[in-house]
Amino acid sequence: MSSIHVTTTLNGDPAEFLCEAEETLLDVLRDRLGHTGAKEGCGTGDCGACSVVVDGRLVCACLMLGAEAAGRSIETVEGMAEGDKLHPLQRKFLDHAALQCGICTPGLLVAAKSLLEREPDPDEEQVRYWLAGNLCRCTGYDKIIRAVLDAAAEMREAS
């Protein structure tokens, strides 16, 4: 069992790590790169708590091997804010109280950002279906959906 050396980009920064072949991207992010924003809720792609963006695509970090990250560009919740300026989605999640415990929040934020980059003016149904892979057990989703729609409206106005 020899470790694999991987060079990648994490939230715009060059990053490299050693990992075993079995390790998932989520394992690597959390245990090797100290980025614990992505959470493991299931480890099987059913809950979305580990949502990250790889080369522009929204994925579950638990369903990708760390070794596959070579040469890719990875974006996580830790990269959403610009300095001390929160992303509009982050602000709207707070304004709308769209989180209770907060464990699903990083994944939802990353997933919602990915939606708004493709569809700046989604309707409620589009938001609900896009986020269907992100389980939240606390909120009943109501305030989350409102926060995403409100952030989308604000981002459209700003652009």
Binding site: R30, H35, T36, G37, K39, L86, L99, T105, P106, L109
Partner: peptide, 11 residues
Amino acid sequence: KVTGRARFGAD
């Protein structure tokens, strides 16, 4: 909690 800094049980 919106920036990923919050430390949960496994963090």
